[in-house]
Structure formats: structure tokens, C-alpha cells
């Protein structure tokens, strides 16, 4: 159900300001959502005045610098720092993106960083993605076959067949798309969301997969698939430039085509 205000214990309070060190020349305010479940306090928005000369160019560099130099309790996920692991997905200046591939220079005004929207927060910028991963698992993201594989080699694909799954298979499961989707915000307990549906599509169109019918059966449901209303936020925010909206439209088309 749609909710227009945050629950009472989630409303964001004014936080602490950490002034820039003396002698800093290129200062930018970085405002970061802080939440500590152990404190029993509401979340707050801390301001860190950061000398952007002291760190690398990306938002992730700023976070690492703040954690190292100012506040070691700042909590966020990161790993590869090159847009392939999907760990540092967060809401930066109102848009879901990867902190590691977002240059600070491209952001207007203060840098405002929140965890991915409409997810339970574990701490600071770390959302609880348990449900999101369970939905991914629910579409059975692995090759399902009935026929035995050729005895002497792998199941081969033509170049064209591979190209069909090339883009959808590039998804890094960062959850930027699903957590940008209003339908997912309001119905995530039953709607699978763009990331899981893109994964489903990737296996439906895989020339080697032999469970296409079952996969489509699983999705033929008023909520799991059809809560997509082509809002296009998913495609808009995808940091890998993938197109979950089109994948979902293609699944809907396949469901129509197989009955006619």
C-alpha cells in the first residue's frame, strides 16, 4: 500500500556537522544519512565538509576519505571500485547509482547520500537486501535442461544467440533499478521487481535453456510480473545501461503470443 510519510522511527533528524580541516582549499559539503540500530535514535543527516583535493574524484573516494579521516563509524558497502560488483549502490543526489562510478564533479550543489530507497536499513548506507536476493533466487537463475548435454563438449550457442543474452546477463544485481521503482516500493512483497525480471528474461531467451514454459508459467501472475506499469525508472537509473523495462515488455509479449 502506498505510504506518503516515513514511519515515525524513520524520520530524519538534523545531524552533526564536521567542519573542514584548517587550510582546506576545495571544500564541498557531503551530507550523509546516518542510522545506528543500536542507539535507539532516529536516523540523522550528518554534514561532512570535505576537502575534495584530499581524495579521488568519485563519490566512493569521498566516502572512503571521510571514513578514514573523520568518522570511522561511517558504514557502507564497497568492493571493486570500478562498477562491476554492485556493492556501493546508493541514492546520490536523488538518483540511485554506484558511488564508485559517479564523479563528484557531475553533481550539483551539496552531495547528498542516502541508502537505496524503501529498503530496511541495516546501518548508515547499508540496506537489507535479503528479500531482493530471495526474489532473484525465485526466478531460478541457472540453466535448466531436460536433454543430456553432448558427451564430448559443452552446449554451444551461435553468436546471434549469445548476443541476445549478452546485455541482460551483464546485470550486477546492484538493486538500483528495483529500488527506484514505485511499483516495487509499494508491492515488493509480491512484485518481483525489474532486477529479478531482467534475470528471468535472460534465462527465458537463453537458447540452451529448456524450461522456458515453466519460467513463463511462474511469471504469469497479476503481481509478480504485471505490477510493472512501464514507469521506466529502472532503465533510467541502471548504472550498466541495461534495459529491464524492455525485458519486462518482452516477457509480457511472450505471454500473449503463446496463448494466441
Amino acid at each position: 500500500m502506498a505510504e506518503f510519510r516515513l514511519p515515525r522511527n524513520s524520520r530524519i533528524a538534523r545531524g552533526v556537522t564536521h567542519a573542514a580541516a584548517a587550510g582546506a582549499t576545495q571544500v564541498r559539503a557531503v551530507r550523509i544519512y546516518r542510522f545506528n540500530p543500536d542507539s535507539g535514535e532516529n536516523p540523522r543527516l550528518d554534514t561532512f565538509e570535505l576537502d575534495t583535493k584530499s581524495c579521488g574524484p568519485m563519490v566512493l573516494d569521498a566516502l572512503i576519505q571521510i571514513k578514514a579521516a573523520t568518522d570511522s563509524s561511517l558504514t557502507f558497502r564497497r568492493s571493486c571500485r570500478e562498477g562491476i560488483c554492485g556493492s556501493c549502490a546508493m541514492n546520490i543526489n536523488g538518483v540511485n547509482r554506484l558511488a564508485c562510478t559517479t564523479p563528484m564533479q557531475e553533481l550539483q550543489g551539496d552531495i547528498r547520500i542516502y541508502p537505496l530507497p524503501h529498503m530496511p536499513v541495516v546501518k548508515d548506507l547499508v540496506p537489507d537486501l535479503t528479500h531482493f536476493y530471495a526474489q532473484y533466487a525465485a526466478v531460478k537463475p541457472w540453466l535448466q535442461t531436460r536433454t543430456p548435454a553432448p558427451p564430448d563438449r559443452e552446449r554451444l550457442q551461435s553468436k546471434e544467440e549469445q548476443e541476445k543474452i549478452d546485455r541482460p546477463a551483464a546485470c550486477i544485481l546492484c538493486a538500483c533499478c528495483s529500488t527506484a521503482c514505485p511499483s516495487y516500493w509499494w508491492n515488493s512483497e509480491r512484485y518481483l521487481g525489474p532486477a529479478a525480471l531482467l534475470a528471468a528474461y535472460r534465462w527465458i531467451i537463453d537458447s540452451r535453456d529448456e524450461a522456458t514454459g515453466e519460467r513463463l508459467d511462474e511469471l504469469e501472475d497479476p503481481f509478480r510480473l504485471y505490477r510493472c506499469h512501464t514507469i521506466m525508472n529502472c532503465t533510467d537509473v541502471c548504472p550498466k545501461d541495461l534495459n529491464p523495462a524492455r525485458a519486462i515488455a518482452e516477457i509480457k509479449k511472450m505471454l500473449v503470443e503463446r496463448t494466441s
Binding site: 512501464t230 521506466m232 532503465t235 533510467d236 545501461d241 534495459n243 523495462a245 524492455r246 515488455a249 518482452e250 509480457k252 509479449k253
Partner: peptide, 10 residues
């Protein structure tokens, strides 16, 4: 038009 799979590029 979108439901026909067209025009869905960003």
C-alpha cells in the same frame, strides 16, 4: 506502443 515492444530505449 510500448506493449508491442517498441520505443523502450531510454
Amino acid at each position: 506502443v510500448w506493449d508491442t515492444g517498441r520505443g523502450l530505449e531510454k
